[in-house]
């Protein structure tokens, strides 16, 4: 079971709305951290994902395990929310 989802985004990234649309279509809500509005959180995104890119989606499950999905990658996103 998914406990919560956080997505790191920017305003210009084309793949960010894709992730948001996908999660919304599957009935999930999420918190969004827009790095244009909160630039001080870039390090956090980098530390979590190991990549200087967005979107980064952090899926936390009820058992507190975390799935990190870098980019718009359905092959990883789908099992993370299953």
């Amino acid at each position: 079971m998914v406990k919560n989802i956080t997505i790191f985004t920017t305003k210009t990234c084309a793949y960010c709305p894709m992730v948001k649309k996908y999660l919304a279509a599957k009935g999930f809500t999420y918190d969004e951290i827009n790095l244009d509005d909160e630039p001080h959180r870039r390090q956090e995104a980098l530390a979590i994902s190991g990549a200087m890119t967005v979107p980064v989606t952090v899926v936390t499950r009820q058992d507190e395990s975390q799935h990190i999905v870098v980019g718009y990658n359905l092959a990883k996103l789908a099992p993370a929310i299953a």
């Binding site: 920017t10 210009t12 990234c13 790095l35 244009d36 870039r42 980098l46 190991g50 890119t53 967005v54």
Partner: peptide, 17 residues
């Protein structure tokens, strides 16, 4: 790749403020 080498400015530019 994605840790300093990029191909999409609109996606990854914000990391280089």
């Amino acid at each position: 790749y994605a840790r300093g080498v990029h191909y999409c400015a609109t996606c990854d530019g914000a990391f280089y403020r």
